[in-house]
Amino acid sequence: MTTYFTADTHFGDAPLVQRRRTTFASVEAHDEALVARWNAIVGVNDAVWHLGDFTAGASRAHCAAVFGRLNGTKRLVRGNHDTNRVLELPWTEPPVENARITVEDGEGQAWRLFLSHYPHRSWPGFWRGTRHLYGHTHACLPDTSRACDVGMDAWDYRPVDLATLIARQDAAEQAPEEMALRGLR
């Protein structure tokens, strides 16, 4: 079993798809592409943490239909667009506002993570090596050596595994603000 992370799928979100017009011709094409890319990576026994904005503006029926087509056991960290039609989907556990978890990266190393829809300048466990994963920004904030955006816009519209996220953070040239101000990386 592999654990994946994603955010900002915005299934059924016509205004967002208009902004993504260069990538997707319609809401239907957007949703179909994201489902196909998700299922090409995530197996039925894998786990996915969705860090918010599963959908926006879609009907309950559309939310349920898309959710049912996605592989894996799914958990939600609530985003600003996640209303009852999303919160009431059959998530593996009840949706949360944020989460502190420990996950193995597939190579036997355990990583402490702070998950939130929103990027934080500092977070619980920051000085004890906890890494931060977030969404919301649609890939407009630079990665740091301890935090990055897991949203669809940042990862070619597909979920991403932990080892890949850690490698991207480790390669980031920018340190989190609190570390940089103290002259640390």
Rank of each mutant, 00 (worst) to 15 (best):
C140S: 15
Y157M: 10
Y134E: 09
I166C: 10
V150A: 09
W155K: 01
L162I: 03
D149Y: 06
H138G: 09
Y134R: 04
H138K: 12
A163Y: 03
C140T: 14
V160Y: 00
T164M: 04
A154P: 05
T164D: 07
L162W: 02
G135Q: 06
R158A: 14
M152A: 11
H136M: 15
P142D: 14
P142R: 13
T164C: 05
V160C: 00
R146V: 08
H138L: 13
C140V: 11
D149W: 09
P159D: 01
M152H: 04
D149K: 05
L141S: 12
C140A: 13
H136K: 05
H136F: 09
Y157P: 00
W155D: 03
L165M: 10
M152F: 08
S145M: 06
T164E: 04
D153C: 06
D153K: 06
C140M: 13
V150Y: 02
A147D: 07
S145F: 00
A147S: 15
D149S: 11
Y134S: 14
R158H: 08
A163V: 06
D161K: 02
T164F: 02
H136G: 13
D149T: 13
W155E: 03
D156W: 00
L141N: 09
I166F: 05
D161M: 02
R146L: 12
P159R: 00
A139E: 02
L141I: 15
I166D: 11
Y157I: 00
I166S: 09
A139H: 07
P142S: 13
V150P: 03
A163R: 12
L141T: 12
M152I: 11
A154C: 08
H138C: 07
L141H: 11
R158F: 00
D161Y: 02
R146I: 02
D161G: 01
G135C: 07
H138Y: 11
H138A: 11
R158W: 00
P142W: 02
D143T: 12
D161I: 00
R158D: 00
L141M: 15
M152W: 05
C148A: 14
T137A: 15
A139Q: 07
Y157T: 01
D156M: 08
H138S: 10
G151K: 06
L162G: 03
D161R: 04
C148W: 04
L165C: 12
R158E: 06
Y157H: 02
A154R: 03
A154V: 03
D161W: 00
Y157D: 09
D143Y: 05
D156G: 10
D149M: 12
I166Q: 04
C148I: 11
D153F: 06
S145A: 14
L141V: 11
A163G: 06
T144P: 11
D161H: 01
T137P: 14
R146P: 06
A139K: 04
D153H: 04
D156T: 04
Y157F: 08
L141Y: 12
I166P: 07
T137K: 11
I166L: 15
D156E: 14
R158K: 08
M152S: 09
L141K: 13
A163N: 07
D153Q: 09
H138I: 09
L141G: 10
A163F: 03
T137N: 12
